[in-house]
């Protein structure tokens, strides 16, 4: 199973885990729409919303290095 395929348990048997094992992934939808992406400034760590085609520049400090945000999805790992 790839990480992205992971589904949160929904089984609600009395002794079972009933989804309480892994909490539901946080809902980040609504953070942005299709045209705006949010990046992180490499200098001041501010969240920088960028429109398509906009100059890559922090609107707080003017730094030109922006980082992509981490995935909003839950990622599963084996503790090995």
């Amino acid at each position: 199973m790839s990480r992205e395929q992971y589904q949160v348990p929904t089984n609600s048997w009395s002794g079972g885990f009933g989804g309480s094992g892994a909490p539901a992934p946080r809902d980040y939808a609504g953070d942005n729409n299709n045209t705006t992406m949010t990046y992180l400034c490499g200098d001041c760590a501010a969240r920088v919303p960028l429109e398509k085609g906009a100059p890559i520049r922090c609107n707080k400090c003017g730094a030109r290095v922006l980082y992509k945000e981490r995935t909003k999805r839950m990622v599963q790992f084996e503790a090995r």
């Binding site: 599963q76 084996e78 503790a79 090995r80």
Partner: peptide, 26 residues
């Protein structure tokens, strides 16, 4: 009994997810 699976919702620390999961397991 030991930690076997780690479900990471967010980890913005400098330690990588894999390394963090491994540390937790130990």
């Amino acid at each position: 009994l030991a930690i076997e699976t780690v479900f990471i919702n967010n980890n913005t620390s400098v330690i990588q997810d894999e390394v963090l999961a491994h540390r937790l397991g130990l």
